[in-house]
Measured scan of single mutants.
Amino acid sequence: GKELVLALYDYQEKSPREVTMKKGDILTLLNSTNKDWWKVEVKATANDKTYERQGFVPAAYVKKL
């Protein structure tokens, strides 16, 4: 199945390749080969529509579930 990670801290994206997350968010882990930056998929809701974004977050800010 898919691997999930838990956001340990809030993170505000600093570039278009990154994604914003809030502490407590559960994210889908896409790639953890880089030890510093993990690629995740974030589900977000805006205007009653759910959309998914993929991007990088600092590996130290998340932990595998």
Rank of each mutant, 00 (worst) to 15 (best):
Q12M: 12
A44S: 12
I26R: 04
P16F: 08
K39F: 15
L8A: 03
Q12V: 14
E52K: 15
P16W: 10
V40C: 02
Y61N: 05
T33L: 09
I26A: 02
K14T: 12
T20D: 03
N34H: 11
K39I: 13
G55C: 05
G24M: 03
Y11R: 02
K43Q: 13
R53M: 07
Y51M: 09
M21Y: 01
Y11W: 10
Y51E: 09
L8S: 02
A7N: 02
W37N: 01
A46F: 14
L27K: 00
I26K: 04
E3L: 12
M21E: 00
K2C: 14
E3K: 07
L8D: 01
L4W: 13
K49N: 11
K23H: 05
K35Q: 09
D48R: 08
A7Q: 00
G1H: 13
L4F: 15
V42I: 12
A44R: 12
S32W: 10
K64L: 14
V62M: 06
D25L: 04
W38Q: 00
K39R: 11
L27H: 03
Y51C: 11
K35A: 12
T45S: 12
Y9K: 13
E41W: 07
W38V: 05
L8K: 05
S32Y: 07
I26Y: 06
W37S: 01
L29D: 01
Q54D: 05
W38A: 03
N47D: 12
K64P: 09
P58E: 01
A7Y: 01
E13W: 06
T45L: 12
L29G: 00
D48E: 11
F56P: 00
K35L: 08
T28D: 04
W38S: 01
T33A: 12
S15N: 12
E41T: 10
R17H: 12
Y51F: 12
K2R: 14
L27G: 06
G24P: 01
E18K: 04
N31S: 13
A46S: 12
K23T: 06
V5S: 02
S15G: 13
T20S: 15
Q54P: 04
E18T: 08
A7F: 03
K39Q: 11
L6C: 10
D25M: 12
K23L: 04
D10R: 03
L65T: 04
E18Q: 12
N31T: 07
K23G: 05
W38D: 00
Y51L: 10
K49M: 13
Q12T: 14
D10N: 08
G55V: 04
N47T: 08
E18V: 05
Y11Q: 00
F56G: 00
A7K: 02
K63H: 09
E18I: 03
T45P: 08
P58W: 05
T50D: 10
E18S: 06
G55Y: 04
E41N: 07
Y61D: 02
A44N: 12
G55L: 05
E3G: 10
D36Q: 13
K64T: 08
L27W: 04
N47I: 09
K14Q: 13
G1C: 15
Q54H: 09
E13D: 04
L30M: 06
T50C: 15
V40F: 03
G1Y: 14
Y11A: 01
K64N: 06
V62P: 01
E13I: 05
T45R: 11
K39V: 14
N34G: 09
K35S: 12
T33I: 08
P16Y: 08
L8H: 02
N34R: 09
